[in-house]
Each structure stands twice: as structure tokens, then as C-alpha cells.
Simulated scan of single mutants.
Amino acid sequence: MKKMALWAVVALVVGAGAYVRLAPSDPARWHVALVSTESQNLPGGVLRVVETGPDGLQRLDEIAQTTPGTKVLAGSVSEGMITYITRTKWIGFPDYTTAQQDGDTLRIHGRLRFGRKDFGVNRARVDGWLAQF
């Protein structure tokens, strides 16, 4: 009986891990325009509003594209808005970061998909990208 319970727990953990790694990412849900006017730290992410000049999105894209585990989910520099998906190395937890250029202002929203708290991961990544400006 204990052995069967152990296998059930193992199957549950493996199944949850597979779902986290393989769940599709719907651009319609994650690639959305930002309306924030001020920077904020959130339990599940971060909002940053910074004055970068008109080329802020281009510069951020160059930095983000070199970040391990990060790829474009939707958008482009020419569209004025990009959403990236960054996955953790081991389990593959996805985080989404949307960046939008509005004149000289760059708005960035980094947030988690699963859970309620990201333990500062999105803040560290977004602030790290901005530090490279």
C-alpha cells in the first residue's frame, strides 16, 4: 500500500512538472498593452516605467535576447511592444515580460504564470536588464 502511494505521489509530481513545462502560452493572454504610469513591486512580478529615449525598446530587446531561457512570445521592436517568455533552467517555470515603448517612456511588466509569489525573480531580471542600459 505504501509503495502504491509513493508511486502516486511520484506520478503527481512528474505530471505537474510536465504541465508547467509544456502548457501552451497564449499570446492573447500575455501580450497586452501596459497602462501603468509608475513603477511598482508586486507579489507576483514587477512594473517599471522608465524614461529611455525613443530607442529604449530596441536596447531592451538586445539585452533580453541574450538572457538564457528567454525567447519572444509575441510582438517586435517595429510593433512597439514585445512579450518575452523566460523559463527557469531546471523545472521550466515560465515568466512573462511585456515591454512597450511609448515615446521616450518604456513600460515593462514582468510577471509569473504559476503561483502567487515570485520571490523577486521578475524584479531581479527586469532591474538587471535596465541596469545594462
Rank of each mutant, 00 (worst) to 15 (best):
K2W: 14
K2F: 12
K3Y: 10
M4P: 15
A5V: 15
L6N: 09
A8V: 15
A8I: 12
A8W: 13
A8Q: 09
V9S: 14
V10A: 15
V10C: 13
A11N: 09
L12M: 14
L12D: 07
V13H: 05
A16S: 08
G17A: 01
G17N: 03
A18G: 13
A18T: 14
Y19N: 11
R21Q: 11
R21G: 09
L22W: 06
L22V: 06
P24C: 00
P24Y: 11
S25A: 15
D26W: 04
P27F: 09
P27K: 05
P27H: 11
R29L: 14
H31F: 00
H31P: 01
V32K: 07
V32W: 02
V32Y: 02
L34S: 01
L34W: 00
L34E: 02
S36V: 13
T37N: 10
T37Q: 11
E38C: 04
S39I: 08
Q40T: 12
L42D: 00
L42S: 05
G44V: 05
G45H: 04
V46K: 02
L47Q: 11
R48V: 01
E51N: 12
E51M: 11
T52D: 02
T52G: 02
T52S: 06
G53E: 09
P54W: 06
D55L: 07
L57H: 01
Q58F: 07
R59S: 10
L60Q: 04
L60V: 08
L60T: 06
L60A: 05
D61P: 07
E62R: 10
Q65N: 12
T66Y: 04
T66P: 01
T67E: 13
P68S: 06
T70N: 05
K71I: 07
V72G: 05
V72T: 09
L73W: 02
L73C: 11
A74K: 03
A74G: 06
S76C: 03
V77H: 05
E79R: 05
G80K: 08
G80V: 12
M81Y: 03
M81S: 08
Y84A: 01
I85T: 12
I85Y: 11
T86N: 03
T88V: 10
K89A: 14
K89Q: 15
W90Y: 08
I91W: 14
G92I: 03
G92Q: 04
F93Y: 10
F93D: 00
P94N: 06
P94V: 01
Y96E: 12
T98R: 01
T98C: 03
T98I: 12
A99F: 12
A99L: 13
A99Q: 04
A99V: 09
Q100G: 07
Q101F: 10
G103A: 10
G103H: 10
G103M: 08
D104C: 03
T105I: 15
L106S: 06
R107Y: 03
H109P: 00
G110L: 02
R111M: 13
R113E: 13
R113L: 04
G115A: 10
K117S: 14
K117Y: 15
D118I: 03
D118M: 09
G120W: 00
V121K: 14
A124M: 13
A124E: 10
A124F: 06
A124L: 10
A124D: 07
R125M: 06
V126F: 01
V126G: 03
V126D: 07
D127H: 06
D127R: 11
G128F: 08
A131E: 15
Q132I: 05
F133M: 14
